[in-house]
Design a protein around this nucleic acid. Structure first.
Lengths: 230, 230
DNA sequence: GTGCGCCGTTACCGATTCGTTACCGGCCCA
DNA sequence: TGGGCCGGTAACGAATCGGTAACGGCGCAC
């Protein structure tokens, strides 16, 4: 996980640093204090995500974003002191993925980062992984495809996400609250109903492909587990 | 991942909150501002780790730690303003697992927490405890599976919990009241009936897999012990 | 605007789980 | 030898958990 942070405020630098260091142990942070070095650093390190202050000593953050967008669709999170609508629209046109308005808390920063990362399926979904194959199940991370006995199982984004965490932790049980936190967010850890409904939907989709399979096993009172037999 | 943080300094509370929220998405934080509520909260929520300031408005942090240690070996990290050697020795005697001396950075706090968590093999993202294997018995914490002679033994959540403490303390005897306190809660230490009924249920499940085994040995008048022969 | 897919929400039901009680048997000590 | 204590066994019923179906709102595409 490589992160480019473009800002000249030491507080922001430290906040970003902490957020990433905590979340991804192998995070590498590249700091740039102005737009010119930011673009250089971007070309050199090819980061997975960019945190970009709009107010920079030399050129405007929009310019940096535009330049980056010429060659990459890396997620960009903008930091701005102004919260005006005009800026947001312009920022989105420039290809920003999200906004944080100063001042912000660490938790807010993290939430935004996580949202963007999730959208881009980074970090959580390590990008270029080998497909998971076990018995009749094939789970192709890159192609975003799930097959059972060679037949494709059409999953919705949410269902895919849920499956993803079960696959990732195979053959272990994933706790209810962990699944809820990862799929819906940490404020949903008590919404057991979400889980049971969507687990059921996944199961029924697999059953539509082949009768009487149970890819998701329940561990009563604990959580769910991916269940495939070789 | 449940965390009890005992401190009356809002900065510390926020720092701990951030560290855990970032690291474990499903972290639940319980805050206590003084020693008395800390102990109450501890009994109520049974946290996985305790962060404890020594300087509290009512009673001294040492007292809190001592009380906690009477019924639990949960990891405790102490926060102290003083860095004197005497305190550290006393703290270790009281059963602290690590120290942080004020003032400290978020990163330092995280490092300590992570070290302690690793030592206790708790909730490390990705990292899981090794299964317990002894003779015909396999107890797999992560996969939440128990096998005897390779055959799965289906345990209910409570039975699992009970077994868990016996496995954790193998080959020692675990006292009745200790088991009751850990599985049901401190206020159930006299409910011997619960124990005998559930121990019996576990035994019968193992016997269903193989005749005449006795995985749980009774130590009359004392407690139970995991009993496996190599 | 209309239709469809996705997902949150609710209600209902059955199986599992666990507390509770009763009874029994063996061990220890008087 | 007999009584009391400790622990094993069996059975019942209530509460809880998880599975299932159905509804409706929202957003998106046509």
């Amino acid at each position: 996980m490589k992160v480019l942070i473009v800002d000249d405020d030491p507080d922001i630098l430290e906040a970003v640093n902490i957020c990433f260091a905590l979340r991804w142990e192998d995070a590498e942070l590249f700091e740039a204090l102005d737009g010119t070095t930011a673009i250089e650093s971007f070309r050199e390190h090819n980061p997975d995500v960019v945190i970009l202050d709009l107010i920079l000593p030399d050129i405007h953050g929009f310019e940096v974003c535009k330049t980056i967008r010429e060659s990459s669709d890396v997620p960009v999170i903008m930091i701005t002191a102004r919260g005006g609508e005009v800026d947001k629209v312009k920022g989105l046109e420039m290809g920003a993925d999200d906004y944080i308005t100063k001042p912000f808390s660490h938790l807010e920063l993290l939430a935004r980062i996580r949202a963007v990362m999730r959208r881009y399926q980074l970090g959580a979904i390590g990008g270029h992984e080998q497909p998971f194959e076990k018995g009749p199940l094939t789970f192709d991370f890159a192609a975003h495809r799930v097959k059972y006995n060679g037949e494709q199982v059409p999953l919705t984004p949410l269902e895919w996400n849920l499956m993803y965490h079960l696959v990732k932790n195979y053959p272990n049980v994933v706790q209810h609250r962990t699944l809820l936190a990862k799929v819906w967010g940490r404020e949903y850890i008590d919404e057991m109903d979400y889980l049971k409904v969507h687990v059921q939907r996944i199961r029924s989709k697999f059953n539509a492909v082949e009768d009487n399979v149970d890819v998701i096993a329940n561990e009563r009172g604990v959580g769910y587990r991916l269940s495939v037999v070789d």
